[in-house]
Amino acid sequence: MQQEADSARRKRPVALITGGGRGLGAAIARELAPGHRLLLGARTAAGLESILAELPDATGWPVELTDYDAVAAAVRPIERLDVLVHNAGIADLGTIAESSVRQWRETLEANLIAVAELTRLLLPALRAANGHVVLINSGAGLRAHAGWASYAAGKFGLRAFGDALRLEEPALRVTSIHPGRIDTDMQRAIVAGEGRAYDPNQFLRPETVARTIRTAIETPGDAHPTEIVLRPR
């Protein structure tokens, strides 16, 4: 029986989720776990301890995504990848007048360049599976707001990256998800920086966004979900 269970597990599609240790990434992991073999990314192994205790069949994939030599080594064993969910990112907010070259570089590096490089390195594995790339974008990738310039620039660039990837790799499906603000620890930090009281009811639930992502992934193969926009009600 155990051998049959192991064989069935090996036949399940493989999904890699970056930023999979907490917040939206952990919610996506929970949503995909029943039907996928999961690789869960985070900067450190410690950042994955909680979700791996919850999902013991998942495999940790700790790597700093802006350390490109380390990323190249980490992807080498992955020969086939059905789903790649780019969830990791940072939000270093502030006005243009208050911004710095460091802020712009770090934000674009984490939210755009690292995504492009990880995708590039995984293209052979994605092609082998006719895979699906899911880009967790933002409402800021459709409309910039004051105080969000560097973040929005990265997300606008991420949308363009997805559009180009869709054209260059027609065997893959590429979905850009544009959620509004989500009830996560990152959101709490943003709201605290804005000097406002935190009301979780103002924001999307991570589980709602995760369910939408699973629906996109499970869309029958005759359809290509290219962009999905979610807003809090």
Results as ranks from 00 to 15, higher is better:
T107H: 04
A58E: 08
A53S: 13
A88C: 01
R76D: 11
E64P: 02
V115C: 08
A53T: 07
D57M: 03
D69M: 10
A72V: 05
R102D: 15
L48F: 13
H36G: 09
E64V: 12
Y68I: 08
R37K: 07
E49A: 15
G47I: 01
T59S: 14
E49T: 14
E109M: 10
V83R: 00
E49L: 09
L65S: 04
Y68P: 01
A72L: 06
E106L: 12
A45R: 15
E79P: 14
T66C: 10
G60P: 14
R105Y: 12
A88E: 00
L39D: 13
E49Y: 02
A46K: 14
A45M: 09
R102A: 13
V101K: 05
T95Q: 01
T107N: 03
H36A: 08
L108F: 06
T107K: 05
I113E: 12
A72M: 01
E54P: 04
E64R: 14
A53C: 02
G35S: 13
A72E: 14
Q103T: 14
R37W: 07
E54G: 06
A72P: 10
A88M: 01
I113C: 00
S99F: 02
A110M: 04
I90Y: 03
E49V: 10
A42D: 08
P56E: 10
L112R: 03
A88K: 00
A114T: 01
